[in-house]
Every structure is written in structure tokens, then in C-alpha cells.
Design a protein around this nucleic acid. Sequence first.
DNA 1: GTCTATATTAGGATAGAC
DNA 2: GTCTATCCTAATATAGAC
Lengths: 202, 202
Amino acid sequence: MTTTMPPSAQPPIRRGPYAKTAQRRQEIVEAATNVFASRGYHGGSLRDIARQIGLSLTSVVHHFPAKSDLLEAVLENADQTGGWTLGLARTEGVKVAILAQVDFNLERKELLRLLAIVSSEASDPAHPAHQWFVDRYDNLASGLAKLLEYDIERGRVSADVDPELTGRLLAAMWDGLQLQWLLDPTQDMHGQMDAALNRLLQ
Amino acid sequence: MTTTMPPSAQPPIRRGPYAKTAQRRQEIVEAATNVFASRGYHGGSLRDIARQIGLSLTSVVHHFPAKSDLLEAVLENADQTGGWTLGLARTEGVKVAILAQVDFNLERKELLRLLAIVSSEASDPAHPAHQWFVDRYDNLASGLAKLLEYDIERGRVSADVDPELTGRLLAAMWDGLQLQWLLDPTQDMHGQMDAALNRLLQ
DNA sequence: GTCTATATTAGGATAGAC
DNA sequence: GTCTATCCTAATATAGAC
């Protein structure tokens, strides 16, 4: 906790350090993304993360007192950089939007590896990211459901489609194809997802 | 390596030890399945595995000199116990067979956790199980493709279905729904897979 | 085959100087 | 904020007795 200033003292102006800290934190988060992506959360070490950006272990710990704090920041960051292209879904429909996101993701293999490994690790309720992933799939499914409803209204998706259920199915297919692609990058994930969307949305 | 007997010496008869060894190995493999399932391959330790069956670490190492040897045995064993119900697919169709396997799998959560975690870890080509999982998905996809062809011939599955591609899609959907169910066991995986099969097989 | 004991390396975390 | 140095724990692996 920060100590409170006595009322008489000059309040220190220090906007520089804050900016520097934010930048450092970002560097650490990016390095952690790489390490967790290749070794998992349990398998990845803070030492590796520190080494990757030429920092000491102590400094990393200074910014993120516990390893789980760092994981939390990594996941937050992953969701921000994985900006879901909502606008495209409104104008072009959910299918086009998903395929665009698939193409975008094919360029960020490390991040996908991270999410794949940690999401399965996190199926243990004691895992620090357990709730985060449970919420993530709930939000993903209901987000897709809303987009599907919109498309159904406009006749772009069959009225037979159950939005909530199909949201779950789309998320599942997405993850599953991504795993197979991660294992074997010669797989045509775009084409496979395209075919899946045609079937699932009729 | 075992030393060769001199021709003059009595060949020792020892069938007991072999059987005992096989049983021990099986015990170790089952403990390793639990540990790898809850902590992953990197995160799981040989000590935990030994402790779980009241054995010393050294004895475990005696049977499996390297950790990766143990993982290999665990995966072999997982595929055997996860006996794919081929007979059912011939008589009742691929959809019934898959749903039966889904129900069976819902009782073996630890094994599914293991496969989920290790398969994503193994997307790193340097992982000891990398090739095993690449082959596994190839075999799974082509196996499903054969079953689909059979069902198409008999009119149980739409002739519009591309067997090889759809085999991939089914495997992906299966994995994806399983992950969501592992994270949140209140998910109705049977119902979701049923709906997915109806859509994917028309 | 199994054990105790130990080697060696590495993990997360903390103390205290600068 | 960053460092060196250190603590404590645990990892894989090996040596050698029984």
C-alpha cells in the first residue's frame, strides 16, 4: 500500500515514472505471453520471462508480485489485442466476420497456443484462470448468439438456427479447428471453418 | 540391456516378475494419467505420481527412465481404454456411435483433461508427443471419413457431405465441446453434440 | 525391484543495497 | 525500479545398498 502524504508536504509530480512502468509492464506481459504459450502456465518460468527481455527476475516480481498476477495480465491483454471485429459482423454478417477473425488469428500463433494450453489447464477449478475462461466462453457464446439473431432477422442465417446453442457450437468448432491447425499448420483452417459455417448456419 | 547367458548355464525361469512388472507399470501409468491430467505434462511431477501409489520416485524412474517415456505409455494406454466403438457405427450409424462414445467419455473426465492439456502443449514440434497427436488427428479424421462413406452409401448421411473434411469438422467440434464441458460441467455436451451432428450431417 | 541418499538444476519468492 | 544475493522448495536423474 502507498503511504499517505502529510497535508503540509509538496505533492510530488512524477508522470514520467508511471509511463515507464506501464511500458515495462507491457514488455513483461508480452514476454510472458511467449513463454506461457510455449510451455504453459505451470511449465513457464518467471526466470525465462525475465531473461527474454534482459531483466532480472526480481524486477519482474516487482511488477507482478505473484505468478498468477502475471497470467491475469496476459489474459487481459490477449482479449484486448484479439479485438473482435463487431462492426464487420453488422454490415457483412457473422460468417464474414468470423472468417476475417480466423485469418487475423492465423498470424498470431503464439497467442492461440497460449489460449489453447491455458484454457485446458484452467479446467481445474483451482487454476487461477478458471473463472476467467468460464466467463470467456459464456460471453463468447452469448455475443455470437446476438450476432446470429441479427443475421436471422435479416435473412442471412436460417431461422431454424438456435442462436444460443449455435453460438456454443461455433466457439467449439473454432477452438477445435484451431487446435488441429496448431498441431499441423498445413491444415486449411480458413476453408474448414468456411465449410463448417455453411453447414451450421445452413 | 540384458546380458546374454553362457550356453552352459541353466536358463532362469522367471515368469512371475514379468507379470508383476507389467502390473506395476500399469499402476504407474494410471497414476501418471491422473497427475498429467490435473497439472499437464510439464506441470506434473514424477514425485506426485510415485506418491499417489505409495512408491518411491526411484522405482518409478526404474520402470520409465525418462519422463517422456511415461507420457508415451500414458497416451498409448489412453487410446486403448478409449476403445472406439466401431461395431456400433456399422449397425447404427456414425451419429449413434459418436453419441455413445460421448456418453462414455463423460465418465472419464481426468482422461479428457489429460488429452486436452497435452494435445495443446504438443503443438510445439519439440514436444515429445507432437507427432503422436498429429498422427492421432489424421487417423481420427480418416477413420470418421470411412464411417461417413459407409453411412452415405446407406442413405443415413446426406450425399452432400465430404467425408474427409467432415471427419475433421466432427473431431474439431468434439474437442471444442469437450473443452467447454470440462470448464463448466453444467454444459449439456450430449445435447450439443447431437445438435451439431444433425447440422453437420444434414 | 525397491529403497535411501545425493547430485544437480531450477522453480517462486524475499531482503536489502543502490 | 532495478539489482545481487539468498532462502526454501521441488524438479529430474543417478549411485549404490539390500
